[in-house]
Write a protein that binds this DNA or RNA. Structure first.
Lengths: 153, 153
DNA sequence: CTCTATGCAAATAATTTGCAAGCAC
DNA sequence: GTGCTTGCAAATTATTTGCATAGAG
């Protein structure tokens, strides 16, 4: 087992523990649809787009509107439970669980779309440097790679 | 003068030299609109969105259609003259001249939108590491920062 | 029962496509 | 003159908003 691997396959998140508290603390309600979206994100190996969440839940016979998916991921993002990522020129946002996960980045195959997590972030020192030289206060960053996955080469 | 500064103000590009050759080599024509878009990008201190290019050219009494702006930046991108960048959750693409410029990244103020170029890229070694560990062939990456500029803090 | 959440319709916003007319070479 | 370009209209895609109703606490 390579401990220092920079990538990982997704692990199963520990569902239903923190999110009810988070919702209630924010005066929001624990609903069937929110649980369904969270549950799906937990079970999924890739960050999902709103449409993918919608389609997948439809297949699972969970009745939900696309608009509700958008609203749900926004709430979950506000609460810090979900991260919104923008992959290289993909033209749509994707969402993944933050709960229990390290800050990380992604690489996406431009041919088939396969996404692998990159368990690293070389940007802590760089952030300091940028702050001192630009006078900006850095709040966040995006770092995403594109390329060809082994199958598509 | 700080030589090793990681950021820079835009310099004026040397217009009209390479782009005609590039266009012709690709069997494309040197048109008034393409020259207008290139000229604008050269004169501008920030990467511009399609709408911004359109609006600015309108102000300069250059008659051009928004659709043509989109088609133009795509052609210029194909030819390698222009780079398309996606700033953190901004929801639109921006374009900047590549000609004569080093590979670089950006930081954008989430309050006022001010964008500063970051003349650095710490990712060459990292790219090798990612390639060896993921088996992907890395083609490109995006690295963009958001935060608050000095004025907005 | 009160207030948040959801569904449905419709509005926006960014970008793309089809087609006939315009212009570069 | 031939074929790439452009303008205009319209289609697409991603996302957001308004409003009346359903549902959580």
């Amino acid at each position: 087992m390579v401990v220092s691997s920079i990538f990982e396959s997704r692990r199963i998140a520990v569902s239903g523990l923190g999110f009810k508290k988070s919702l209630k603390a924010a005066g929001r309600r624990v609903t069937r649809t929110r649980q369904a979206v969270l549950s799906l994100l937990e079970r999924t190996a890739q960050p999902l787009s709103a449409t993918e969440i919608f389609d997948q839940l439809q297949q699972e016979k969970v009745s939900i509107d696309l608009v509700t998916v958008y609203r749900t991921v926004h709430v979950l993002k506000e609460l810090g439970l979900v991260a919104q990522i923008e992959l290289h020129q993909e033209g749509q946002a994707r969402f993944e669980l933050k709960e229990g996960r390290e800050h990380h980045h992604h690489i996406r195959c431009q041919m088939c779309g396969a996404i692998v997590d990159l368990l690293l972030c070389p940007l802590k020192k760089l952030t300091k440097l940028i702050e001192s030289q630009t006078q900006y206060i850095v709040d966040d960053h995006t770092l995403e790679f594109t390329g060809l996955c082994p199958k598509c080469q």
